[in-house]
Amino acid sequence: MTTTRRTILQAVLATAAAAILPPPLKGAAQGRPPATKPIPSTGEALPVVGLGSWITFNVGDDPVLRDECAAVMAAFFDAGGRIIDSSPMYGSSQDVIGYGLEKLGRPSRLFSAEKVWTSSGDNGPAQIEESRRFWGVPRFDLLQVHNLVAWEEHLKTLFEMKAAGQLRYVGITTSEGRRHDLFEEIMRTQPLDFVQITYNVVDREVEDRILPLARDRGMGVIVNRPFQQGVLTQRLEGEPLPEWATEIGASTWAQFILKFIVSHPAVTVAIPATTRVDHVRENLAAATGPMPDEATRRRMAAYVQDL
């Protein structure tokens, strides 16, 4: 009866969220599935918008906020989302994700993306196992070396886990443009499935070398901090969207930014973090409808730059 319980629980959470929040946006929340892209190393399809957990899911043991996070996760899965990303660095986020997954009956569509973040390679396996227990999953789909900390030792562990069938994908992460030279070097020499970087309509350094390199090497790209932790969307809040935004199906700045990111040919998925059900719906809706072509992407970047 697990399926029935899960279905009822998801319906209850979604109903509760719908009762207190604005009506859903057009797109994913109306039943249109989000666009997907293939993971280069396997061809497995991933919805192009995922869910990050940096800051937003670090709510400790606050029961009210834990339930709010579970409601965000319910709306995320309801709108067709799959990949949720976290890290041991993110405080209680792993535990809160595990709480949400348990409450939602462990959705089968989950694509679990975690990180290993410890300065000692010897401590990596124990940390990974602790993270797995927090999530309550049998194994992670993706494990990434967080910010390249002890990357040589951890990558050795992760590749061994992948070979043993304890892990499906291996990756590395950085954020806000840090250590890109080393990042590229690792990309050139290691058989990675994923790289995670910061990219958005104003932080575009990765367009020069890292994104082309990811395509050449057949690596998936996960984009973190698409809204600069809210700074970018707050800055654009008072500015008008261009009239031609409707041509790409963007009705908000968040959708405008997400569509810019995920329409890059090398990008696999963007992982915005949020504490709000209406925002997660808005984000997933950005994965539906028309996407900008290269000329429109240039126009989008120029428009924001001129504001």
Binding site: I55, T56, N58, G60, D62, V64, M89, L148, G177
Partner: peptide, 27 residues
């Protein structure tokens, strides 16, 4: 920490103000 000069004070904040202040209520 590599490239420590690229970090801002905000980069070390792991939680939102709402979570922080509610923590005192809970405590």
């Amino acid at each position: 920490m590599p490239e420590w000069w690229t970090y801002r004070l905000e980069d070390f904040l792991l939680f939102s103000p709402r979570v922080y202040w509610r923590m005192f209520e809970l405590h």
